[in-house]
């Protein structure tokens, strides 16, 4: 299912770089637009939801398989 407009591949990057890249990517999306984030830093499991919460974005899903985390984030206002 392809319900996102943008892929943000931050595999191999350590936090906070995945957050910086996600922030930059979302800047190019309209409110309500979605990005899929692919990450290998386990910190993403804590950091992305926290970052979404303080910035008003919605954390749609977060799935972990082995060393890969896949998240869908929806841009807020």
């Amino acid at each position: 299912m392809s319900d996102w407009q943008l892929d943000v591949d931050v595999r191999g990057l350590l936090c906070p770089l995945p957050i910086f890249k996600t922030d930059q990517a979302l800047a190019g999306l309209p409110v309500g637009g979605r990005a899929r984030i692919l990450a290998t830093d386990p910190g993403i499991a804590h950091d992305l939801p926290a970052w979404c919460q303080i910035n008003g974005h919605a954390m749609v899903s977060l799935v972990n398989k082995g060393r890969l985390w896949t998240a869908i984030v929806e841009k807020g206002t």
Binding site: L14, H46, A50, I54
Partner: peptide
Amino acid sequence: QSHTGAIRNPKPGAPPPRHDALHAAKNLGV
């Protein structure tokens, strides 16, 4: 950040690392 520790294999059962400032901001609500 504890993430640097996460370059190495995580210890079984260890909580995921986190970015301290992000979590402090979340808890402060700022």
